[in-house]
């Protein structure tokens, strides 16, 4: 299906991308349209653009990550930036250096863009207040992961042609998920109907006030759904009495053929990765024809290129 024709201006009036919160519908469409172009660039043999030539991008990760880090690295390189990855393990925290000390040190090296992931909610906001460059939130605690929500939206739009009026079910560990929060905000902003499906122990207090319909019965929640978005369940949750066992979780909240058959016949399946096969999702579905999981990864690079490009235009001496 062809995406809706672009009718949105490509201006993006923000210095940072800290979350979906604070973006307008127009901002989101602008990024998605930019990302469409980035998909084309990425599918060429010659994948380089020069938008970020001479710019320095530092990927500052306080929490382990493979896919998001490599996605941002490739995105930056395709746009011509000098990209440096810095993984700050817990060890330097133990040495007594605070996150802000680390940030101040990097800031003194005059990067143009900092891509930051941190295990604490709000850490990226705090850091953005203390540095002079543009900051992109690559995931902060259980708060936001805006580029994930954008790539999910791009993937959906490319398959369904729109976001508005689709019914999207977000299933699993909503309580600990920044992906869920960013997606709830974005999908609501673009007019989708959003459901969350989870056991009550994995639903945060007041979630219904965020504009979602809440289901604890997955079969009920999947009725008439266009998109099934699965979340990762960390095994540590078993130890902390959120759910008793993997097999019980999979039985009631794992996506298998039988449960998926309740959704619309053309419903598609997504997962932000990394997956726990047999915990939240059956392998057959993850690898099956209705799975968009591989494509999400491709769209991830495109969306991150779009975000970098949009912010670059607002850098000092930028092209805007």
């Amino acid at each position: 299906m062809k995406p809706e024709p672009s009718k949105h201006s490509l201006t993006f009036p923000h210095q940072h991308l800290l979350g979906i919160q604070g973006l307008s519908e127009q901002d989101i469409y602008a990024l998605l349209d930019l990302a469409e172009n980035a998909v084309e660039v990425s599918r060429q043999v010659e994948k380089k653009k020069a938008v970020l030539r001479g710019r320095t991008q530092i990927n500052l990760f306080f929490e382990a990550s493979t896919r998001t880090l490599s996605s941002f690295e490739i995105a930056g390189k395709r746009l011509g930036a000098d990209v440096m990855n810095m993984s700050v393990a817990a060890s330097s925290v133990k040495k007594g250096e605070t996150m802000l000390d680390t940030a101040a040190t990097l800031n003194a090296m005059h990067p143009d863009i900092l891509v930051v992931r941190h295990h604490a909610s709000g850490a990226v906001h705090l850091l953005a207040q203390k540095v002079g460059c543009s900051v992109i939130n690559a995931g902060d605690g259980a708060h936001e992961h805006p580029t994930q929500a954008l790539l999910d939206a791009l993937t959906i739009r490319r398959h369904k042609g729109r976001i508005a009026r689709l019914t999207v079910a977000i299933c699993g560990d909503v309580a600990h998920s920044r992906v869920a929060r960013s997606n709830i905000l974005l999908l609501n902003a673009l007019g989708a109907r959003v459901r969350v499906i989870a056991p009550l122990t994995l639903l945060p207090a007041g979630i219904e006030r965020l504009g979602v319909e809440v289901f604890t019965d997955m079969r009920e929640g999947l009725k008439d759904v266009d998109i099934v978005m699965m979340l990762r369940l960390q095994r540590e949750r078993m130890a902390a009495s959120y759910v008793p066992s993997v097999r019980e979780y999979f039985r009631f909240y794992g996506l298998d053929e039988e449960k998926l058959s309740i959704a619309r016949p053309d419903a598609l399946v997504m997962h932000p990765g990394p997956m726990n096969r047999g915990v939240e999702i059956d392998s057959g579905i993850a690898d099956g024809p209705r799975s968009l999981i591989g494509e999400q990864v491709e769209m991830g690079v495109a969306v991150r290129m779009a975000v970098l490009e949009a912010l670059a235009a607002n850098l000092p001496n930028g092209s805007a």
Binding site: G122, D140, G206, I207
Partner: peptide, 15 residues
């Protein structure tokens, strides 16, 4: 405090 505000901020709540 546990509730909507904590959920929005992604912070674990205290009931």
């Amino acid at each position: 405090n546990e509730g909507e505000t904590a959920t929005r901020l992604g912070l674990p709540g205290i009931p």
